[in-house]
Design a protein around this nucleic acid. Structure first.
Ligand SMILES: [Mn+2]
Ligand SMILES: [Mn+2]
Ligand SMILES: [Zn+2]
Ligand SMILES: [Zn+2]
Lengths: 135, 135
DNA sequence: GCAGTGTTTAGAATAGTTCTAAACTTCTTG
DNA sequence: CAAGAAGTTTAGAACTATTCTAAACACTGC
């Protein structure tokens, strides 16, 4: 049995989203098991293989809603497609360029010193570190 | 008179590219004056306003060729569009989220300590720091 | 000048994503 | 639990950024 009961309907309701069959199916794929980085197309392929297939439009809707609700974070590392990240805490990424794979690493042990002050009239919202690696 | 003679035909030849009228016109817009971050559409609007208009396909071709030749660097910070950066040296970016504006800052004063070792079988190609700021 | 090869171009094509509006589901209230 | 209201799903059309196609054109070296 998992440490925390993954009551997806409740988690969706808590996020202000109706727990429809489609959203619950997607939440299961996303949040059951370890942290993941998915693309819309990739998640659509996965959910089509399940007992509760979901249209591509709904996959996009759900990913955008989950992101807006703070359940996901959007990561942009390469032109043409967005990744959605189930890890919403502070962390950074390795990006394996040839395969388009993303790997997390924690930010607590990373120190970024000497950043200049932000442009006038702006506040820092987030600092992203992307370590691009090749084979 | 500028410090270095901006002989664009010569610079293009040195990069292995024929100095066509279109490429010279684009190189002028890109490399004359300070460092810039352009989008394909933005550069196309600029060059259309000049005495030597250029098709959008050629703008895309030239940007990709200039990047492949090391004259430009591609920067991906937001979904949907690529920026091309005339500053090809080591540096990082502020990204002003509401307006989609990019600002450089040098990387020599920035220290990134504590990065984990890259995934097995990979080598670091580049480390990008994107400081996302809001008004 | 003349090949020969590389480049430009308009327009078609593609890929990822969002929109539309009709059908359907979930929620609330009586 | 029935009925109505409000929110959601869906197929397909639409849209945006980018690439492709193939025919006209322009650089280059002789
Ligand atoms: Mn989006
Ligand atoms: Mn590209
Ligand atoms: Zn991540
Ligand atoms: Zn830059």
């Amino acid at each position: 049995m998992p440490a925390t009961s993954p009551d997806f309907p409740a988690r969706l309701r808590a996020a202000g989203l109706r727990p429809t069959r489609q959203r619950v199916a997607l939440a299961r794929l996303l949040f059951e098991g370890g942290p993941r980085h998915v693309t819309a197309e990739g998640l659509h392929v996965e959910v089509k293989a399940s007992r509760m297939p979901v249209s591509l439009a709904t996959v996009y809707n759900a990913l955008n809603q989950f992101r807006d609700a703070g359940l996901l974070r959007e990561v942009v590392v390469a032109p043409g497609r967005s990744y959605f990240d189930t890890n919403t805490g502070h962390h950074h990424h390795f990006f394996i360029e040839p395969d388009g794979e993303l790997h997390d690493f924690p930010s607590d042990k990373v120190t970024i010193a000497g950043l200049p002050t932000p442009p006038k009239g702006t506040r820092v919202a987030r600092v992203d570190v992307i370590v691009r690696v090749r084979r």
